[in-house]
């Protein structure tokens, strides 16, 4: 991707796709219902899958096809399915407890996006075309927004989704900036996401059974 001259229609497509990816993370920030979060995450992963596929076709890289396929299976299908399944099983209809209210969250998200843009601009503007700077900035802001989601929402499921958004950001970052990253790395990262999500789901299930809630607000016994 670096140093590659792309046709104009591809530039537009990539810009559009990454803009929608960013938009979906704002959908997550502005929502109070857990199922919104999960669907937004699924659609975001689907857009990342399309982006990876386009880059694979453009660079004639079989590795990227494979990575795109696995992204589709793991990020778009398995993980949202597991999360939705768990919501159905425990019949969760509770709203999310927010420590920072929705308007403030959106403003913080905007600030983080701008910060991500300037950071990435300063780092890589010497050796990459503008289009890549835009997409990489969005990838980095996904990482920031993921962290913000973890600290501002008091539910185990939203914390899992925050981690997944961070992973999405890193994946987007690596696909856009370093598409030659060894295949084994991407595979292992996907495997790792699966293991971590399963582990966290089991933990939150145990928590639900033991404490009767998915809220992390009551986890305040261990201090000092």
């Amino acid at each position: 991707m670096l140093g590659l001259v792309l046709p104009v229609y591809l530039n537009v497509t990539i810009d559009l796709l990454t803009a929608f990816i960013l938009l979906l993370s704002f959908v997550m920030l502005s929502s109070k219902w857990i199922s919104f979060y999960i669907h937004a995450y699924g659609i975001q992963s689907f857009l990342i899958f399309i982006l990876t596929l386009i880059l694979g076709i453009e660079t004639h890289s079989v590795d990227l096809y494979l990575v795109a396929l696995l992204t589709l299976i793991v990020r778009c299908l398995i993980v949202p399915y597991m999360l939705l399944n768990m919501m159905k099983k425990f019949n969760i209809k509770e709203e999310i407890n927010l420590s920072i209210k929705i308007p403030a969250s959106i403003i913080t998200g905007l600030v983080l996006t701008v910060f991500g843009y300037f950071l990435i601009f300063k780092l890589i503007h010497n050796f990459v075309p503008d289009i890549i700077i835009n997409s990489a900035a969005i990838a980095l802001s996904l990482v920031f927004i993921g962290f913000f989601m973890i600290i501002s929402r008091y539910t185990t499921i939203t914390q899992i989704l925050g981690l997944l958004v961070i992973e999405n950001g890193i994946f987007l970052f690596s696909v856009i900036l370093t598409p030659t990253l060894p295949l084994i790395v991407e595979l292992v990262v996907l495997f790792d996401i699966l293991v971590t999500v399963v582990a966290m789901l089991i933990l939150s299930m145990i928590m639900k059974i033991k404490t009767g809630s998915f809220s992390t607000g009551m986890l305040n016994r261990l201090v000092g």
Binding site: F147, I166, F173, T178, V189, A199, I206, L219
Partner: peptide, 28 residues
């Protein structure tokens, strides 16, 4: 399994997993 140990395990896995993500970004 006690409430305290679940709390400890949850904090552990969330904080360290996000830490590892940052390290992964550094590796990229």
């Amino acid at each position: 399994i006690t409430e305290k140990s679940i709390e400890a395990a949850w904090k552990y896995i969330v904080i360290v997993s996000s830490g590892i993500s940052i390290a992964l970004l550094g590796t990229v």
